[in-house]
Amino acid sequence: MILLDRVTKTYNRDMGPALDRISLNVEPKEFVIVVGQSGAGKTTLLRLLTREERQTSGKIIVGGVDYDKLADKDIPLLRRKIGVVFQDFKLLPNRNVFENIAFALEIVGMGKHEIYRTVPKVLEIVNLTGKEKSMPMELSGGERQRVAIARAVVRQPKILIADEPTGNLDPKHAWDVIKVLEKINRFGTTVLLTTHNKEIVDKLKRRVVTIQDGKIIRDRANAAYKI
């Protein structure tokens, strides 16, 4: 599903590479947690996958698409196949919950009726039925993040990328969000999650990839948090 072969990303030639010859293979329906100290290169890795950044060298193939052969005009199409969730939610503040989720469908040209059929289903998955009319400001952090997840999965992407989705949340809300991610993974979506939260990693017992100074130093199945 996700294949990285000796991928290097250098932002600035004066500094060392943010990612240094990373090789990683993620199978379909896998749940992978990426851990590492601040500045290790976790976000950089995810930004390469969403094509917000371009690798300096190496090969990236996601869902059969070779990023070297990806034209600028095809980037939107790529992003429609990858769901993304961020630490700061990135919801549109002047749209309510329903509209925020619908936005992802409007972008791909889905008709109104289909949108009205699809959004409630995904709201149910993230346990937010009844909150359609709420504005993001009126929600707790955990609820906001679940709206963001709903928006990320409403187009049924094969891959969901979540960059510290629990970074701004208290433990209870954090766990609510993680449970939703597990649920989505059970439905068959490949999940790539970064986190600093030891408790979550230990509880999940999933594959853990540890990055240090831009290099993968550990890659274990059913692993505990260790950096």
Partner: peptide
């Protein structure tokens, strides 16, 4: 700009 960057990340066309 925030709205635009969100649109981009969600795969909005040019």
């Amino acid at each position: 700009r925030d709205e635009i960057s969100i649109m981009r990340l969600l795969g909005a066309s040019t």
